[in-house]
Design a protein around this nucleic acid. Structure first.
Length: 571
RNA sequence: CGGGAUGUGGCGCAGCCUGGCAGCGCACCUGCUUUGGGAGCAGGGGGUCGGGAGUUCAAAUCUCCCCAUCCCGACCA
């Protein structure tokens, strides 16, 4: 394509509201424009990248036997009611009503629709099936952010596997695991598979593919020695043994006027590791106590995963006072019998502890957790922190910020059962297939590449998804020989199947160099009078900025070779 | 939803405190000169100052309400 006739609105300055690097560069480079918060238009350059990312995903899905579908984006309420998610999805789901008054939803995922289609599977002989689509999702995110990284409307490759049994599901899951690693390698993304929480999807296991980046929204605990890696929503660590303080016969209350926080109490001679933190939550509407060691943080996700609770909300101050007779700062679980009490594993066997006495400005000391508190359930609900020891090998854990680039789930039979899906087994009995679901956000993948592939001058696309593979920069468009050479190269490279951009704009060379770098084209051929005098053109790589002079007749083979090599990286 | 910030041509910003002609840079158009790293000169086009109400002789500027956008948190496959 000829740059002079393309719509590539590059900007010298990024819009003030863009903060994330990928957001700034994709806007500046003329790839995307925002329509409203969380909704972006793909401009021609952005759409080319988007389509290349989608194509890589498509090829790898086809490689593992995936069959491509395209399902409706708009769904009847009935299928969501059947799975129970019409209610449980809450405000995250966009809902609307048609002219007849029927309730509709914009699809935020497609388990229900695919499960509906799977009702036409009749026999175990038809399994396994692996179905996918690349299609638009709508999610009413409370806070879209960082350009394409978190949006309300986006293309996602979502796939779904149907197997007869758990062994089959394991195979389908592993196929996806491998396919995802190939996809991310081809996108030049260093994506680490990590153990993850299954969250609202339910199911038995899930793995997230995480790319380290400060623009991310997830923290991942990583062990450098044994390879353990898990989202902190799920991560565990070896607990350092704490020496209990001397035991006492019974809890002793003591006055603590004005002491409201763990750290204030620590200042009064009660180190936080010897305190019990008492949290009051409404768990699916039931007032509940959750106990942790004073220095530990509570992870609601871990709690939901451990207990199956759907709604976990901090209780209001007046509810707390009504139930316990004191305000936060003086709360405790000693002698509480009418509320369900959960305790974090880190409190097991602890004695000589300090906790609130459920009287304002009073605390107990000498608390023996097992003796004095009627604990109903022991759970692992604490957040781990960097520097703790790996539970498997004892080495130090790091915590790294990551972008979630992909997520794969073992779902089990939940959706198939809800939609009444059965197939006949070899012995003639009805079997409910077991499902997996697997997702990669296309726009997010693109933004993640931008986030991890750039320099001071702009984007540095890998060859595999660059909007154009080569840019021919004509230094002086009114220099006749330059244009003749450029046109010939343009045609030759095009017929060799290369994505070529011919910068034939009448402008100063500095502007053209800067633009070519900003939009991140991997290879540049500079065509100008200076080189042509000696029959030479300049070949520049975007990533390294290495320059080399190349004889005119060698340019096409050299470029073709570099492009073909670049495309195949990671394959 | 809680906290913070911002809204002035396509983009970046000043002006607001202390009310009195809507300005600057980039981009854009025309002409000339220039052309191997974001040119120079001259001329030119483009803005309901986020919206509404109020105060005032007079509002971008003061007051109130609303909206939008961004950041932090909550939330979120």
């Amino acid at each position: 394509m000829r740059w002079s006739s393309l719509f590539i609105p590059t900007l010298r300055d990024a819009p003030a509201e863009a903060e994330a690097v990928s957001h700034r560069l994709l806007v500046r480079g003329g790839f995307i424009r925002q329509l409203q918060s969380g909704h972006y238009s793909m401009l021609p350059l952005g759409w080319r990248v988007h389509q290349k990312v989608a194509q890589i995903i498509r090829e790898e899905m086809d490689n593992i036997g995936g069959q491509e579908f395209l399902l409706p984006a708009m769904h009847p309420a009935s299928i969501w009611q059947a799975s129970g998610r019409w209610d449980s999805m809450g405000e995250e789901m966009f809902r609307l009503t048609d002219r007849k008054g029927a309730d509709l939803a914009l699809g935020m995922t497609h388990e229900e629709v695919f499960a509906t289609l799977s009702q036409e599977l009749n026999s175990y002989r038809e399994l396994p099936q692996l179905w996918y689509q690349i299609q638009w999702k709508f999610r009413d995110e409370p806070r879209p952010k960082s350009g394409l990284l978190r949006v309300r409307e986006f293309a996602m490759k979502d796939s779904y596997s149907f197997d007869l049994d758990n062994e089959g599901l394991d195979r389908s899951f592993d196929l996806h695991h491998n396919a995802y690693q190939r996809v991310f390698r081809r996108l030049a993304l260093d994506a680490r598979p990590v153990e993850a929480s299954s969250g609202a999807m339910g199911g038995s296991a899930s793995i997230e593919f995480m790319v380290e980046s400060n623009a991310g929204e997830d923290d991942v605990a990583v062990c450098g020695s044994c390879g353990y890696a898990a989202n902190v929503e799920r991560a565990t660590a070896a607990l350092k043994v704490v020496e209990n303080r001397p035991q006492s016969d019974a809890p002793q209350s003591f006055p603590t006027p004005g002491v409201r926080t763990i750290s204030a109490l620590a200042d009064h001679g009660h180190p936080s590791v010897h305190q019990i933190k008492t949290l009051v939550y409404l768990v699916d509407g039931q007032l509940t106590l959750i106990l942790l060691r004073g220095d530990h943080s509570f992870l609601e996700q871990k709690f939901s995963d451990a207990t199956g609770a759907v709604e976990v909300l901090p209780a209001e101050a007046d509810e707390i006072r009504q139930a316990l007779g004191a305000s936060p700062g003086s709360l405790g679980a000693v002698g509480v019998t009418d509320l369900t009490i959960y305790a974090d594993e880190a409190l097991r066997g602890r004695t000589g502890m300090t906790t609130g006495a459920n009287v304002d400005d009073q605390h107990f000391e000498g608390v023996d957790v097992d003796r004095d508190i009627p604990i109903d359930h022991w759970v692992d609900v604490r957040g781990i922190t960097a520097g703790e020891e790996c539970a498997s090998c004892g080495d130090t854990l790091r915590v790294v910020r990551c972008i979630e680039a992909g997520h794969i789930f073992k779902l089990g039979q939940k959706y198939a059962e809800a939609m009444g899906v059965t197939v006949l087994d070899a012995d003639g009995s009805n079997r409910v297939p077991t499902m997996g679901s697997y997702g990669i956000g296309v726009g997010r993948a693109m933004a993640t590449v931008a986030e991890t592939h750039h320099d001071d001058h702009g984007l540095v696309w890998p060859m595999s998804i660059a909007p154009y593979e080569v840019v021919l920069t004509v230094v002086k468009v009114d220099h006749e020989e330059s244009m003749v050479v450029a046109e010939r190269l343009y045609e030759d490279l095009r017929s060799a199947g290369i994505d070529v951009l011919l910068d034939d704009r009448d402008g100063r060379p500095g502007v053209k160099f800067a633009d070519a770098e900003l939009i991140g084209i991997p290879l540049r051929v500079t065509i100008g009078p200076r080189g042509l005098e000696n029959g030479l053109l300049e070949l520049t790589g975007r990533a390294t900025t290495d320059k080399s002079d190349v004889a005119i007749e060698d340019v096409v083979p050299k470029v073709v070779d570099a492009v073909v090599t670049g495309r195949s990286l990671g394959r």
